[in-house]
Amino acid sequence: MKLFSNTIHSLEKALDNSALRQKVISNNIANVDTPNYKAQDVSFKNLLSNEMNSPLRANRTNEKHFEFTSSKRLNSQVVTKNDTAYNHNGNNVDIDKEMALLAENQIYYNAVTERISGKFNTLKTVIKGGN
Results as ranks from 00 to 15, higher is better:
M1C: 02
K2I: 13
K2H: 04
K2E: 08
L3Q: 10
L3H: 06
F4A: 10
S5Q: 06
S5L: 00
N6Y: 01
N6K: 14
N6F: 04
I8V: 15
S10C: 04
S10R: 09
S10G: 01
K13A: 05
A14S: 09
L15Y: 06
L15A: 03
L15Q: 07
N17Y: 08
N17R: 12
S18D: 00
L20T: 08
R21W: 02
Q22N: 11
Q22D: 01
Q22K: 14
V24Y: 03
V24S: 04
N27Y: 00
N27R: 08
A30S: 12
A30G: 06
N31E: 00
V32Q: 07
V32G: 00
D33F: 01
T34N: 07
P35Y: 08
Y37I: 06
Y37F: 15
K38G: 03
A39R: 14
Q40D: 00
Q40S: 11
D41H: 05
V42C: 07
S43R: 11
N46D: 14
N46I: 07
L47E: 10
L47K: 09
L48E: 02
L48Q: 06
S49T: 15
E51P: 01
E51D: 08
M52Y: 09
S54N: 14
P55V: 06
P55I: 03
P55R: 07
L56N: 07
N59F: 03
N62G: 02
E63Y: 11
E63Q: 12
H65D: 13
H65V: 07
F66C: 02
F66S: 11
T69P: 00
T69E: 08
T69A: 05
S71D: 12
S71W: 02
L74A: 13
N75Q: 11
T80K: 14
T80R: 13
K81A: 08
K81E: 08
K81H: 08
D83A: 11
T84D: 02
A85I: 06
A85F: 00
N87A: 14
H88V: 14
H88N: 10
N89M: 03
G90V: 08
V93A: 03
V93R: 08
V93N: 03
D96M: 04
E98Y: 09
M99V: 07
A100S: 12
A100M: 13
A100D: 00
L101S: 09
A103T: 12
E104I: 09
Y108P: 01
Y108G: 01
Y108T: 03
Y109P: 07
T113Q: 13
E114G: 10
I116G: 07
K119M: 09
K119L: 08
K119P: 05
F120G: 10
F120H: 11
N121Q: 15
N121L: 14
T122H: 12
L123Y: 14
K124I: 12
K124D: 12
T125R: 15
V126S: 11
V126N: 07
G129F: 11
N131T: 15
N131K: 15
